[in-house]
Nucleic acid binder design. Structure first.
Lengths: 341, 341
DNA sequence: CTGAAAGCGCTTACAG
DNA sequence: CTGAAAGCGCTTACAG
């Protein structure tokens, strides 16, 4: 079969050198902007490279340099809403430089994770970022790896590892301070699965902050349930019945908050007039379409990804570090917490 | 500074050969399961490899074989809900084999896309999948590339390219057939931005299907707007006022459908008793938490990604192909379209 | 300023 | 069954 327009073999330095009538050594220097090349020669080489659409083979270069300029992103579940922004932040930080990113989704399976790990090490990535989908600490990848690793969102259980995550306790504080600043004093906390470290930490932050103001959560405790609208609706109804004077809701997710908003509206309560509601995650699609639009805590997950990438860069350059770095959240105000006049 | 536990240099075949007391050639054969090696020698080599945690350098191997076993996934926006499932499907199809995936997010910027393309070609990927976030055809990557390319979700404008996308016209048919089978005859279509090819195609499919049954859309046309809950609510209210006998809603997205459901409930209409509602995207978080739970069209996007990966595999193996392959959608029934008794 | 040679880590004929 | 040699595509001292 003749070559009928199928993809052409990629041009090589030797092709370029031959076309320009020089040695590969000279071609290499010309293309890489080394000083010791006559201008006229350089021009000839560059023209040949251009005509052949020459793209230097990064594999060959990496083999020499002992660095590939690649990094592995190992995620436990791509589906999860939390991994994606972290990935995007990391991809962004790397993309700006010259590094390419391998994406591996272990789908929550430790075997699969090890399999991907082997592949990445074989490909000689310069480093790894392990992205989790929950803030619960996770077991480290394994023994001493030949490249640095940074854990993002889900920190490593091992204190010598490097982890970047979000400050959930402080997030609880932020949410409560915001409701307090709206003039609320009877604040309920409706949140998700108690098994999630994030749920516990945010509740702890909320509790401590109220205590420091001489207050406590309505009902004397956080109400744990599931991360769903249905739970939010049910909880709102129940709380309204038992604590008629509740004037603020701190919700563990925007889904829960959507349910709470529906429950309150259907009970005839006015948000933000009678009651303030704050959600968590700042999930645009849910928050911006809520009635009223929902104030929410944003975890700055892209920032978590970016910082993880920066720490990894530093480690690749030899700056060893360890421990868990907790980044602050921020509040995005919308209509559901307009301050009481 | 002494080497105090920092990452160790990765072991090389030479290290293994030396430890086993054989040549690198023999070590290579032993490790790769070639026949011509004495059992005892093979055992010695494998043990050495094990002790050194030897992982063969894939770069060196790729350089020889002229194939890297890597593929580039070029997405236009990671944020979009539609890219992610396609990516997951592709990652899944590749991950099962032995290929690693480079992820590049062009963020909708053509310059950035070209930049990533150059990097990927330099790294000698065996092929590329270009994942779009809308079904509107897009300009191809550029001239004759040295590796095969498959466009996923957003097809290429060039007929010689290979594209895999979803069948939007047929999706419109599916939705309408489903509502008809629920006993509905007065069906309205509330959908998103008319600029989106997907919105037009689904509307066309709906119109044709109704026509083939001697029916037409309520109001004589599709109602285009935005992909939001707010638009769904507003449209439901308006349609109810103008066409009191409407008994079915085909919505262009689950967000729109959520708005429609809220609008209908607040107008005192019973879903699915009086009116059936079907959404689009089968976005679990929205559909499963709707009141009532929302029947929705699923685009099988993971399947789009998987098929794109398969087509790419075939092309890498020399099977040239071209044209747009349109995969069918499917309906996921929930409570909002229980058949009328 | 230019080029021959060595080498990154591996595999594959080819001798022995 | 084992090993010396060549080579994938490139870069970097080192001569000339």
């Amino acid at each position: 079969m003749a070559d009928d327009g199928g993809p052409a073999r990629a041009a090589t330095l030797t092709d370029v050198a031959r076309m320009a009538g020089v040695s590969t050594a000279t071609a290499s220097k010309a293309i890489n902007g080394r000083a010791q090349v006559r201008a006229e020669t350089r021009a000839r080489v560059l023209e040949a490279a251009e005509r052949l659409s020459f793209a230097p083979n990064a594999l060959a270069r990496s083999l020499l340099e002992g660095r590939t300029g690649t990094v592995g992103l190992l995620t436990s579940d791509l589906e999860g809403r939390f991994s994606i922004p972290v990935l995007m932040g990391a991809e962004d930080a790397f993309g700006a430089g010259q590094v390419s990113v391998f994406l591996c989704d272990a789908r929550g399976d430790a075997i699969r994770e090890q399999h991907h790990l082997r592949a990445l090490l074989s490909r000689r990535v310069d480093g790894l970022i392990v992205v989790g989908s929950r803030t619960d600490p996770r077991p480290p990848l394994g023994g001493s790896l030949p490249v640095p690793v940074v854990y993002a969102y889900a920190p490593s259980l091992h204190p010598d590892d490097m982890s970047v995550t979000t400050d959930s306790v402080d997030a609880g504080r932020l949410a409560i301070e915001h409701l307090l600043s709206c003039g609320r004093r009877r604040i309920a906390h409706v949140t998700g699965d108690i098994e999630h470290r994030a749920a516990q930490d945010r509740a702890a932050g909320a509790r401590e902050t109220l205590a420091s103001h001489g207050l406590e959560l309505v009902g004397g405790r956080a109400f744990f349930g599931s991360w769903s609208e249905g739970w939010g609706r049910a909880a709102a109804r129940t709380l309204l019945e038992r604590f008629d004077d509740v004037d603020g809701f701190f919700c563990g997710s925007d889904q829960i908050a959507r349910g709470v908003l529906d429950g309150l509206r259907e009970a005839g309560r006015d948000v933000p007039g009678d009651i303030s509601v704050i959600g968590f995650d700042n999930w645009e699609v849910l928050a911006a379409n809520a009635r009223p639009q929902l104030t929410s805590v944003d975890m700055n997950l892209e920032q978590v990804g970016r910082v993880a990438a920066q720490r990894l860069f530093a480690a690749i350059d030899g700056e060893r570090a360890s421990g868990v770095e907790e980044l602050p959240c921020r509040i995005v105000t919308r209509e559901s917490t307009l301050p009481v006049a």
